[in-house]
Write a protein that binds this DNA or RNA. Structure first.
Length: 111
DNA sequence: AAAATGACTTTTT
DNA sequence: CAAAAAGCCATTT
């Protein structure tokens, strides 16, 4: 059986597996989901998520270690949710990617 | 079909 | 190291 999950579905699966207190980047997600260089597409997917989703969408940030708020709101909600998981931000609103980045070991997307 | 857009990333200043 | 420019790519105009 083919079970070709769409890129979108694969991305959502990976997000569902990000551990608490850990973060990943749009680019890293795109890569793991099988489409390198498609970070913006991942951004589009998350932007389209309803706030009622059960996914830990707030654990996704950009490669500079900041919360992406390019053409959207302030992102204070996301920051609060991360701080609730003991993720500390510095005075510039950035976090230490080296410390919090999730090192993917094995994805359970199975098929 | 061409141009603009955007929860992005990498390179260059 | 921070900020700007350039690069990328699916979607929408």
């Amino acid at each position: 059986m083919q079970s070709t999950k769409s890129f979108r579905e694969r991305v959502l699966d990976v997000i569902a597996n990000i551990p608490e207190g850990r973060v990943t980047t749009y680019g890293q997600l795109a890569e793991v989901a099988g489409m390198p260089r498609h970070a913006r597409a991942v951004g589009d997917i998350l932007h389209g998520l309803s706030l009622e989703t059960d996914l830990p969408w707030w654990r996704v940030i950009n490669s500079s270690g900041k919360i992406s708020t390019y053409k959207v709101g302030t992102g204070e909600l996301q920051r609060g949710l991360l701080e609730r998981e003991a993720v500390h931000f510095d005075s510039n609103g950035k976090l230490k990617l080296e410390q919090y980045r999730w090192q993917i070991e094995a994805i359970e997307t199975e098929n």
